[in-house]
Write a protein that binds this DNA or RNA. Structure first.
Ligand SMILES: [Mn+2]
Ligand SMILES: [Mn+2]
Ligand SMILES: [Zn+2]
Ligand SMILES: [Zn+2]
Lengths: 137, 137
DNA sequence: AATTGAGCGAGAACGATTATCATTATCTTG
DNA sequence: CAAGATAATGATAATCGTTCTCGCTCAATT
């Protein structure tokens, strides 16, 4: 039986995503499509892609890591209260790059920018007084 | 016996750190100072501070989360090859903030910016051929 | 065909975070 | 002040994302 090209499979799946996706969710999605792939392989390939600078890794405050392709990447406003992620229309890096001064020569291959705060739905809500039982996820 | 003000204790300890610190390390440091505090309480208070937007949460690729006060923070150039981290002299956010247009009203409480690429020492080196066993970050 | 080595998947191991629960301090009320 | 209600605490267990381990399979090479 021919070995499926897992790397290409993962790249294509990442390309289809509208939002950054976790390794576990990626694994579940592939399995649901009938693919025979192991969780370890998903993590292995993601590590490879990361080393090559092809992946954007969005480390969430809860520890889970979301992945997206570095080429056409987006940045998000993340509400620390309701966890909603709002995509910015464009990456501002091209503009910003000119104004940045590095302490030493450095070739930037990709970048991560995450903005955390309160969305307009959560700004007006009363402060949690009690135990604040709402999970941060 | 009077209950100690754990929240103040944690805020003061965070203020002393030169680098972002994990919850576990924070707990160990407090215990080493002779404080009687539980790990659960550390996590509880960190959750509270996070909800209030006082904390910068740096999710590491291995799942560990590093915390720092949102007031004074730094950004780094990270070499994906030798893993060296070069600290930027200043946070460029104040300048950039003016030029950003949000798709909806959003109150930014803190941000995370990381630049990945090749440092000047690693730019000329040949590509890794072997197993690339170097741990990621 | 035999050898070699990289890639694979299932599951165990790991570790950080979260949930649980009995206990204790603090607040409320009379 | 006494007594009950409420909230905070810390030890421990449970959870869960990630990494490690280990036979196994496949494909390239000889
Ligand atoms: Mn960008
Ligand atoms: Mn900054
Ligand atoms: Zn929100
Ligand atoms: Zn380097």
């Amino acid at each position: 039986m021919a070995r499926p090209d897992h790397r290409r499979l993962i790249l294509e799946t990442l390309q289809k995503q509208e939002q950054p996706i976790s390794a576990q969710a990626l694994f579940a999605q592939l399995r649901q499509q009938g693919q025979t792939i192991g969780l370890a392989t998903v993590y292995r390939i993601l590590s490879h892609l990361r080393r090559e600078g092809l992946l954007c890794c969005h480390g969430q405050p809860e520890g889970e890591i979301l992945y997206s392709l570095a080429e056409h990447h987006y940045h998000y406003l993340t509400c620390i209260r309701c966890r909603r992620m709002i995509r910015l229309p464009a990456c501002p890096w091209q503009e910003w790059e000119k104004t940045l001064k590095f302490p030493e020569p450095f070739q930037v291959l990709y970048h991560e920018l995450q903005l955390f705060g309160l969305c307009h739905l959560c700004q007006g809500l009363p402060k949690e007084v009690g135990g604040s039982k709402t999970p941060l996820q």
